[in-house]
Computed example of a mutant assay.
Amino acid sequence: MNNVIYEKINLNPNLPALLGYFGKENTDVKRHYYIHSHWHRSIEINFVTEGELMGFINGKSISAKSGDFVLVNSGDVHEFEKYQGKLCGVVILVLSYDFIKKVYPNIDSIQFDIMNSNCKKDRLQEIFLEIKEFSLNKNELDYIKINSYIYEILYILLTNYRIQKEDNYTNNYFKYKERQKEILIYISENYKKELTLEHISKHFYMSSEYFSRKFHKWFGVTYKAYLNNFRLSKAYEDIINSDDNIQDIASFHGFSNIKSFISVFKQKYNMTPLKYRKYFKASKNNQKENKKWKQ
């Protein structure tokens, strides 16, 4: 994903939703994947088919294992991560807000809580496994069956996992989301510059202490940790996809010096950037050789 903060959902053709599957069948297990903090008005449901999915929703850490659902309500700020070398299979369904609004006009007064519910999820799991198969083995008329699944999923959500929002919840909620969006956009557009805590808090007319406290509450990490992780995720792509000098990559993506970049990189990947590049290229070459032998 690019520097997306408010994410506009591009729906699948003939469907009021975006759906897909990401797992060992169609992604590189050895790669690290990180989806930056963002939000959208659509409702997103992730079903973990294998491995583990890590992330944050509204500043709260989540860890979902095989068989678990992770539901992101409209407006929730969320990010997800899959570590290199670890399996993680996820079926993703993002339901259009406009579609839900037409089917259930009172959508703005409710939200869904599937993760803390004791209701059985057998039927939902069956449907999402079917969606996985549709994603891997596409057919011209699949959308007809998938549309029926979407209506059934929405019915299950409304009958089993619906909870009422408090009065004035919606207006306050999206007011704060707008401020969060502004902060994340500012970081994504200026992360290559020297973005000290003092600089960004002054930009948003807050004291450093207040900004730091709010940032941690909203996103679940400190401002420094978020900025380093954002810069690192951008530098990571250049590490594995180019032969550029490591120091040049670090400088280009906002790290003040090569020492700090290597330190942050090692904390995440347990090796230096140069060693990781060699490791990643060697693993890619091994995969190519294995494919040749199988053929």
Rank of each mutant, 00 (worst) to 15 (best):
P105R: 06
P105E: 06
N106T: 05
N106M: 07
I107V: 15
Q111K: 14
Q111I: 04
Q111W: 07
F112M: 07
F112E: 06
D113G: 05
D113E: 12
I114L: 10
M115K: 14
N116G: 13
N116S: 14
S117E: 10
N118S: 13
C119I: 04
K120D: 10
D122E: 13
L124R: 10
E126A: 03
I127E: 09
I127G: 11
L129F: 11
I131R: 05
E133Y: 12
E133V: 04
F134P: 01
F134A: 11
N139L: 13
N139F: 07
E140N: 08
L141W: 05
L141P: 00
D142C: 05
D142N: 14
D142Y: 02
Y143E: 08
Y143A: 05
I144N: 04
I144H: 03
S148E: 15
S148H: 09
I150E: 06
I150D: 05
I150R: 04
Y151N: 14
Y151A: 11
E152G: 11
E152Y: 09
I153S: 08
I153Q: 07
I156M: 09
T159S: 15
T159Y: 10
R162T: 12
R162D: 00
Q164D: 09
K165C: 15
K165P: 02
E166M: 09
E166G: 09
E166K: 12
D167C: 03
Y169D: 15
Y169E: 12
Y169I: 01
T170M: 09
T170E: 14
N171A: 10
N171Y: 06
N171E: 13
N172H: 07
Y173A: 02
F174D: 03
F174Y: 13
F174L: 09
K175R: 10
K175N: 07
Y176I: 08
R179W: 12
R179F: 15
R179V: 14
Q180W: 02
I183Y: 12
L184N: 14
L184Q: 14
Y186R: 05
S188D: 11
S188N: 14
S188C: 12
E189V: 10
E189P: 02
E189C: 13
Y191D: 10
Y191L: 15
E194A: 13
L195D: 07
T196H: 06
T196W: 04
T196N: 09
E198W: 01
H199L: 15
H199P: 00
H199I: 13
I200R: 02
K202E: 09
H203Y: 15
H203S: 14
F204N: 07
M206S: 15
S207A: 14
S208Y: 01
Y210V: 15
F211R: 03
S212P: 01
K214M: 08
K214Y: 02
H216Y: 07
F219Q: 04
G220T: 03
T222P: 02
Y223N: 02
Y223M: 04
K224A: 12
Y226N: 01
Y226H: 06
L227E: 00
L227S: 01
L227H: 01
N228L: 03
N229L: 11
N229F: 04
F230G: 00
R231W: 01
L232R: 10
S233D: 04
K234V: 01
K234G: 01
A235M: 05
A235Q: 04
Y236R: 02
E237G: 03
D238I: 00
D238L: 08
I240T: 07
N241G: 06
S242M: 01
D244R: 13
